[in-house]
């Protein structure tokens, strides 16, 4: 199970990474986040959606309503330049952590 704290720390970079490929709508993004976490997530879709809203307030993503083939409009999210900058810096941080964790996992194989 991924804890709330770890999820809180990793959701933003994961969403940014998803959006760095192309724009997407809320439900799709949330499903991708859930898949990445292997379904071990304590958060509901609605809570995850509030993260997207917060990221928009912080200027990392922008959104606009679009109708694509269906009758209902959907809110599509797109990464901003600031979002890309934050993503790059987060990626570097996470790689650093991963490196450290990999190192520790070699020393303590039993715990890995």
């Amino acid at each position: 199970m991924i804890t709330k704290t770890l999820m809180a720390a990793s959701t933003r970079p994961i969403i940014l990474a998803i959006l760095s490929g192309r724009e997407d709508y809320g439900y799709n993004i949330i499903q991708k986040v859930k898949n990445i976490s292997g379904g071990n997530l304590e958060w509901t879709d609605g809570m995850l959606y509030s993260v997207l809203q917060r990221m928009e307030m912080d200027g990392l993503v922008t959104s606009q309503w679009k109708i694509d083939g269906e009758s209902r409009p959907r809110r599509y999210f797109e990464i901003t330049a600031e979002g890309r900058r934050v993503l790059a810096s987060e990626m570097a941080n996470w790689k650093q952590i991963l490196k450290a964790m990999t190192l520790f996992s070699r020393r303590h194989p039993a715990e890995s």
Partner: peptide, 8 residues
């Protein structure tokens, strides 16, 4: 899946 209104 969406979650309870109060927590959202």
């Amino acid at each position: 899946q969406v979650g309870p209104a109060p927590s959202i």
